[in-house]
Simulated assay, not measured.
Amino acid sequence: MKRAVMMLLACIGLAVGSADAAKVEQVWPLDGHENEQGDFFKKSIERMAALPGFQCHFDQMMVFTDGGGQRYSGDLAVLKPKRFRWQYEKPYEQFYISDGYGIWHYEPDLMQAERLDNLEAVDPAVMKLLDGRISTADLKVLQKENASGQQTRRYQVSIKGSEPVWLGFSRHGDLISIERQDLLGNRNRMSLSKCSYIAPSENLFSFTPPDGVDVLDMRSSK
């Protein structure tokens, strides 16, 4: 369980693939007006909160202070409220599924499934943000910058109960990047691609352990 929990707790650095061709001129309709830039951020957060759910492919990169690193990839699905599915394909297959009440963690190579009920243990602030449970009232903008080469606008924000993170948005207001550094200096980045903003099926968030799998019940009340 340890290796998987570390991976999921670190899933808070996002950056979505390249924008349109370089010949397309970046146009920010709100540039040059501080109050309107604030409106852009607010509307982008509200737009995300209003989505019933979404699905994306992710590519994650963790960079450690000792010079090492680790890459992960897989698929993420969210269905509000509180249902999510993190499915890792690389470096090994595993996934977390929350049905809104509890969490299954399954690692096929170990033939082991764990039943969890502590959402906070694998539900960091950014997951709450993706799930629409964090509003602009819960965010404080510390810094902001435009990354013209990537056609993104980034904001460093403080989220209640979490260390500051960088949130990046496309010129259309889609959340396209999140980057975080922990207290030890390790950095986490993830890229999202092939996103669909149509709510995924509820069936995606249910799980029954296959025959022969060792099931560990880690719930506090059984």
Rank of each mutant, 00 (worst) to 15 (best):
N188E: 03
V215G: 00
R171C: 04
S221Y: 03
S148M: 01
D174H: 08
G173I: 03
F64C: 09
A4R: 05
A113L: 13
Y88T: 04
V5R: 05
G185H: 01
E202Y: 06
I159T: 12
W86H: 14
R71L: 01
W166H: 05
K128L: 10
Q150H: 10
I178W: 04
L76R: 06
Q55F: 13
R189D: 08
L51V: 03
V141C: 11
D174A: 15
M61C: 08
L184N: 12
F41E: 06
G149Y: 07
Q112Y: 04
V141H: 12
G185T: 02
R83L: 03
E89C: 12
R83A: 05
Q87I: 02
A4Y: 05
Y101F: 10
Y155K: 12
A147E: 10
Q181K: 04
M48H: 09
Y96R: 07
L116K: 01
L183Y: 13
R71D: 02
Q94Y: 09
P29R: 09
M61N: 10
A199Y: 07
P29A: 14
P108F: 09
S158G: 06
A125V: 02
L183W: 15
V24E: 15
L216E: 00
L192F: 05
N186I: 15
Q181L: 01
I103E: 02
L216F: 00
E46W: 04
E145C: 04
I103V: 15
R171N: 05
T152L: 06
R154T: 11
R115W: 08
S221I: 06
Q37H: 11
L175H: 11
I178D: 13
D39A: 10
V126G: 05
T208I: 07
Q151C: 01
A121G: 09
T136D: 03
F41H: 09
A21S: 02
G168F: 04
Y197R: 07
P210A: 02
D211V: 14
L110D: 15
H57A: 11
W166A: 02
K140W: 04
A49K: 12
D123W: 08
M7C: 11
F54L: 15
Q87S: 10
Y72N: 10
D217M: 03
P200V: 06
I159K: 08
L192A: 04
R154G: 03
Y101V: 15
M6A: 15
N203R: 09
E36R: 03
S170F: 05
I134G: 03
Q87G: 07
N203A: 09
G68M: 02
D174M: 08
G132C: 08
D109C: 03
R3P: 07
D99I: 00
